[in-house]
Design a protein around this nucleic acid. Structure first.
Lengths: 141, 141
DNA sequence: AAATTATTGCGACAGATTTGCAAATATAAT
DNA sequence: ATTATATTTGCAAATCTGTCGCAATAATTT
């Protein structure tokens, strides 16, 4: 959907938008965060494992995607540039991951706190764990 | 330093404070978050790899430590019980990880936002990326 | 002290990620 | 468009991480 932005980021860093890269981008675009295994199997027959790892590494380095940690695994999602800044709500029961849109006041407070600690904040990740609406309901019977 | 607390937690769960467990606890106590590789090499000759994995898994299950995700790796740190609730400031330049003590107002705001989204928050992780005081200085010459 | 239970070490192993290198593809230069 | 140059990809092999079964040790209970 946003191939022009993608292409621009790549070009700015001396890389180009190849068939491979477009394909991997498309596997991520509009989807929930994806595990490597899923990416690898979705691209089976078209792309090699190593290529996928290398591409994700490149994408991460250029800020196109970032790794979302889940327990001691991780999944890949497009970065804020493509999705808008947001946080995640992880349901401890059903495992679903919901988006929590960013809130200006919260962002400000986080930056303020970091700045007070003499730190120069650039970005941050906030992951909240608990029960999603559905599981919360189910639990309170 | 807090071996009695450690022992109490273990005992409550039907486990005991063995030499092995004390050693691993001491490798974590008062240190920055540690990677498994570091723990393994620090304990080289004294403990087997598998034992360290098993012990960390036990510690995590009992809430003695937790995994701190960093990119697609993770590090281990003692849990809030031993360190107090806090967040992390990751320096993108030197890689150092600093603690940011928890702030009641921030915690409240996070919980409120999650609750407004119909979610039942239980706990959360906030990781802030940017430049640490030293690197910030160095950069602004 | 003997019996029972929990813990640890030692391979061996499965899966995940990385690497070197040659082939293929893309980009730049003529 | 064709050649030269640099980048990207696939393939196979190597490495790294984390896990497992099982026998040996250590701890706890009787």
């Amino acid at each position: 959907m946003q191939h022009s932005t993608l292409k621009a980021i790549l070009k700015k860093n001396g890389s180009s938008l190849t068939r491979t890269r477009r394909l991997i981008f498309d596997l991520l675009d509009g989807q929930d965060p994806q595990s490597m295994q899923v990416l690898i199997s979705r691209a089976a027959g078209q792309l090699d494992r190593a290529t996928i790892y290398r591409t994700i590494e490149l994408f991460e380095r250029l800020g196109i995607v970032h790794r979302l940690n889940i327990g001691w695994k991780y999944k890949i999602e497009l970065s804020d540039v493509f999705t808008g800044h947001h946080h995640h709500l992880h349901c401890s029961k059903c495992g679903k991951i919901l988006d929590l849109p960013s809130n200006p006041m919260l962002e400000t407070m986080i930056d303020t706190l970091a700045t007070k600690a003499e730190f120069a904040p650039r970005n941050h990740i906030l992951e909240i764990y608990g029960l999603c609406p559905a599981c919360k309901q189910a639990g309170s019977k």
